[in-house]
Amino acid sequence: MFKLKAFSFLFFFVFHIALGHSFTFNNNAAAAFDKDEITVNVNDTDCAGADSGDSNYACNSDFITPQKLLDLTERAINRFWNRIPTTRLNLVRGSLVSKGNTFRRGQLCNESYASGTCTPNTALKVSSDILISCNCHKNNFGDSNVGILGVTIPNNYDGVAIKGSLILINGRHDGFHNLTDNEKINVIGHEIGHALGLGHSPVEDSLMYYSNIGKRDHLGWDDLDGISYLYPSSQPLNLNCGTVSLKSPNDSDSSESNSGPNNTSFFLLSFFSIVFLGFILRYGRRRFF
């Protein structure tokens, strides 16, 4: 099975080893975006067959279109990160943005993927929010296929606040392209987790586990805890007013809405409450009104 890979933002820091089983961060300050609503944009560059003559950044002949990448990204944010009850975080589908070929050809870090350290390449600094681009550079994914599907770093910081994160999806090899849509969504979801500041989880059922697992429809507890830790909700001061889904019956994406309490139970609860309040009003009206 292919392994997911993301570089963490590790330079400058000295490590000491401790044991634990929990979510982790990719930086030592628990850095996170300093806003609640984060847009995820996709570079409009097309990777399929691009630069095929160049040994450094030749792309595979097959890769999904930027539009398809954007659609899968939206499904990833709504399947995973927008479903956490105890966070204020709200990810928003962005748009295709014209970043030229820089993000398709560039290196994520000044070092190669194999070096184990990462000094972010300033030429690929993301000015704000999250940018996803396909990319074919051999130093990001290996000259031949070593199974890396995507690499991510927050590469724009202001103190401990993340301002911008970059996700590069492997267009050099056919590994990502050959995944099913569901698996692609999981890979994108995992990389977005890194973009938000999470490191890996030692727990197999977490999306932030380092490796792709068999069946993935939901986040694991570790993912929930990690995002809740970095982006705690602060209701009632800051209500999660995010997404109220208005689905039409023929919505092709309806498989995304099957977790958590469904609408039927929600409306039953509402009905129960309204009937009950009716009781109170009825019994109380002589005194109250």
């Binding site: 570089f7 490590f15 080893i17 961060f25 199974g147 380092y210």
Partner: peptide, 19 residues
């Protein structure tokens, strides 16, 4: 607990930070 935890990261391993 704070500190770091060394976890797999692609083909190698990396120390990640704990809350």
């Amino acid at each position: 607990p704070g500190g770091t935890e060394t976890l797999n990261n692609g083909n190698s391993s990396t120390a990640f930070y704990l809350p």
